[in-house]
Amino acid sequence: MVLSRISAELLSRDWYCLIHSYLAMHIPDGFLNLPVIIMTWIITIGLIAVALNKVEAEYQDRTVSLMGVCAAFIFAAQMINFPIPGGTSGHLLGGTLAGVLLGPWAGTLVMSTVFIVQGVVFQDGGITVMGANIFNMGLIGTFGGYYLFSAIRNQVGKNKLSGMVTGTAIAAWFSVVIAATACAIELGLSGTVPLPIALAAMTGWHILIGIGEALISTVTVTFIWRTRPDLFYHPPVKSKSRIQN
């Protein structure tokens, strides 16, 4: 357990790429073929356009400041390494967490922003395949994750902590595993990696990573529930805040 503070900018940037890339599923340039690139870009551009409109309508002139800091929050949270049951360590992808906290549209926009900055500034994930990366982790991970969470939360109990926790845990695990599967299918469709190998490697590995994602997301959501439940996209009706205003 070492807190390594590497102050030289270059070194820290490289270390960031190193630990980050091994664990996340950011596809680099050159791994997807043209049809897959075009398909995923079309979906992604449509998604971002709709998300921008929805978010601007909802947050109005708060859009830039709030979405900016929230994207920086997800970026910072993704850099925190934590132990996964089984011995290794992993980090948060944060799609479902963003969805639970900010709602499907703002969550998707924030995640897309994170991927754009990671791709352009850190070369973590390619530029031509950014459509696919946003599709996997923004659309499937965040949008899909939010609606799965929402369905489970409504079943278990909308205003109960148990509903929140169950929904978050299940949605977080599924969003990571399904996003990894989508990534494997894209690699397979492009003819880069044979589909069975891609599926076995990506999905198999992320079944483990997903457990870590679910645990951390759950703890985070529980903390916010206990301290500032009003910050959730759908805050519980009966506030259980311990802080008396």
Binding site: M1, V2, L3, S4, R5, I6, S7, A8, E9, S12, R13, W15, Y16, I19, M79, I80, N81, F82, P83, S89, V121
Partner: peptide, 10 residues
Amino acid sequence: MVLLHIGAFH
């Protein structure tokens, strides 16, 4: 547990 610090980006 390694936590990384990115300085001001340059």
